[in-house]
Simulated assay, not measured.
Amino acid sequence: MPRAVKRKEHPLSMRLPETDIAIIDRAAALRGRSRTDFVRDAAVRAAEEVLMETAPIRMSSAGFKAFMATLSEPAAPVPEMVELFQRAAPWESKAFTSEVDAGSREENASKQKARSGKRR
């Protein structure tokens, strides 16, 4: 007598506008995944976030005291963060500024050329 095989997968059907499907397909293609894999992953991730936001955190009394003691200690600087905040921002460098200026000049010149062509 054949045994019934229990399915591990359950279908999920959704009706979406074409614009939503197009966005999902573009994003899935950029990740190199199928639409199904992409949507499944996004839905599970969103569900996990909701569950983590609402899940109570349980710990022993000793664990809670240790946690509170750690929070009560003075903050210690993180060397990597200190170094990061001491760096100049990319837009503060001369190379970046000259690239932006060159791009702006070219863009303005092409706009002006287009405007002068329309006036004639």
Rank of each mutant, 00 (worst) to 15 (best):
S72L: 15
E9G: 02
F38E: 03
D20K: 03
M59R: 02
F64Y: 09
A89I: 03
R26K: 06
T19Y: 07
A22G: 02
Q86Y: 08
V44H: 01
A47N: 00
I24H: 03
E48H: 03
I23F: 03
F67G: 05
A43W: 03
R87C: 04
E80P: 07
L12R: 12
R33Y: 06
T97C: 14
R33M: 12
S72I: 09
T70L: 13
S60H: 06
R33S: 10
P74Y: 07
E48C: 07
L84T: 01
E92R: 11
V82I: 15
T19A: 15
L71R: 13
A27Q: 08
L51P: 00
T54E: 07
T97L: 09
A62T: 11
M52I: 04
D25M: 08
V100E: 04
A29K: 11
L51V: 05
A76G: 06
I23G: 01
M81K: 13
F38Q: 00
L16V: 13
A46V: 04
K94L: 14
A76S: 13
L12C: 06
I24A: 05
E99G: 00
S61N: 08
E53G: 00
V100R: 08
L84I: 04
P74Q: 12
M52F: 03
S13K: 04
K8S: 12
L84W: 10
P74E: 14
D37N: 00
S13F: 11
T36G: 07
L84M: 12
T54F: 03
P79C: 11
D41H: 07
V78Q: 07
T70R: 14
A22M: 07
D37F: 00
V50R: 07
P11N: 11
E80V: 14
T54R: 08
T97I: 15
S98N: 08
W91R: 14
P77L: 13
V50S: 06
R33N: 00
R33C: 07
E99T: 09
E92Q: 15
I24K: 02
G32W: 05
A66T: 06
R87H: 05
R15W: 10
M14F: 14
P56E: 09
L84S: 07
V50I: 10
W91G: 06
S98A: 12
L71W: 09
I24F: 09
T97G: 01
S13N: 05
E83T: 08
S61G: 02
Q86H: 13
R33H: 05
P74R: 13
A89C: 13
M52T: 02
A55S: 12
P74A: 14
R58L: 12
